[in-house]
């Protein structure tokens, strides 16, 4: 092969990230007639944490890396605009917004800041982030009051729990299982597939589909590795990432059926908030918009909101 890309994603081979990576590898290797080789490194063999992988990507030690906002916010804090609670109302709007002009704007900005990180596409990983609790069911934001809820160590996630009166508790992923078992935390915020694959369902009994976060999955490439490709291969790589994107968008929708079934079969209860309760959740998270602008300025929050609004308008059923 003329070009070899090391592709890293931190999830294991059961994850849709891996499905996407496989589709990408197959597409790019066959459509480049073997001129590009893609080597897959799932599960932290070359780098163990998002920040570390991003550093490897910047140094061109790895060429392709999948990250959520959690990792990217260490180089581009404003990316957390995608994590502003209840920013995306539905799958379809999220897919539209994260597949539109917003991607180009983000690509340009991050390239400007880092000089080396090129955003290729935004897919999904694990569907939506929801509240998941051990013994107390959450039906409205008032129920969060006084609960210790595990969040990732990200200011905006902690702010959400705080705004609902809970205690946000940042605990590393490796200690979540034991912390749920012993009661250090009373709940967590995760997607169903992460809950099931880490076996958190052995303690988690309630999931509330409040859908406060769409788990956008950003695929990055080292800018030099992309720039040195001849134009025809650039096209192949771009197309390959589009195939990857659709794979990661479709797979969670299909997979979560079994995941939810298994969760319920193990004695778990899934609750979908009513229209009114959902509105209460959104209202409780309202102050975060201002908090976000105070922290990071309003530019990127507005940009994402505009993308969402125009998608919502364009997706209205024809009358």
């Amino acid at each position: 092969a003329d070009f070899t890309f090391n592709l890293v994603h931190l999830s294991n081979t059961d994850d849709e990230d891996y499905d996407g990576a496989l589709v990408f590898k197959d597409y790019v290797e066959s459509h480049s007639n073997g001129r590009i080789a893609v080597q897959l490194y799932p599960g932290g063999q070359l780098c163990g944490a998002p920040v570390e992988c991003i550093e490897s990507l910047q140094s061109n030690l790895i060429q392709i890396f999948q990250a959520t906002t959690g990792g990217v916010s260490n180089v581009f804090p404003e990316i957390q605009a995608l994590d502003v609670p209840y920013m995306f109302p539905s799958d379809r709007v999220a897919e539209c917004a994260l597949g539109g002009p917003l991607v180009g704007e983000l690509r340009e900005e991050v390239l400007k800041r880092t000089g080396s990180m090129r955003l290729m596409t935004i897919g999904n990983t694990g569907g939506w982030r929801n509240f998941a609790t051990v013994s107390k069911q959450i039906k409205s934001p008032a129920d969060v009051k006084g609960m210790k809820i595990r969040t990732i160590n990200s200011p905006i996630q902690m702010e959400l729990v705080k705004n609902m009166g809970g205690t946000p508790t940042p605990i590393g992923w490796s200690e979540v299982y034991t912390s749920l078992a012993t009661g250090v935390i009373e709940g967590t915020k995760n997607g169903i597939t992460d809950i099931m694959s880490a076996k958190l369902n052995e303690h988690i009994k309630y999931i509330t589909l409040d859908g406060h976060g769409y788990m956008g999955s950003m695929w990055w490439m080292n800018q030099d590795a992309f720039a040195e490709l001849p134009d025809d291969l650039k096209q192949v790589v771009d197309d390959g990432f589009d195939a990857l994107r659709w794979t990661t968008i479709v797979m969670p929708k299909r997979r979560q059926i079994e995941a939810y079934e298994a969760f319920k079969k193990g004695g778990g209860t899934v609750y979908t908030p009513s229209e009114q309760e959902k509105a209460e959740f959104v209202k409780a998270a309202e102050p975060i918009h201002k908090w976000f602008s105070d922290q990071y300025g309003s530019k990127w929050q507005d940009t994402v909101e505009n993308a969402v609004n125009s998608c919502e308008a364009s997706l209205k059923p024809a009358g």
Binding site: N12, D14, S197, A198, K199
Partner: peptide, 10 residues
């Protein structure tokens, strides 16, 4: 191991 291989921690 449980995380990588999808078996039950408990």
């Amino acid at each position: 191991y449980a995380y990588v291989m999808n078996v039950s921690v408990g």
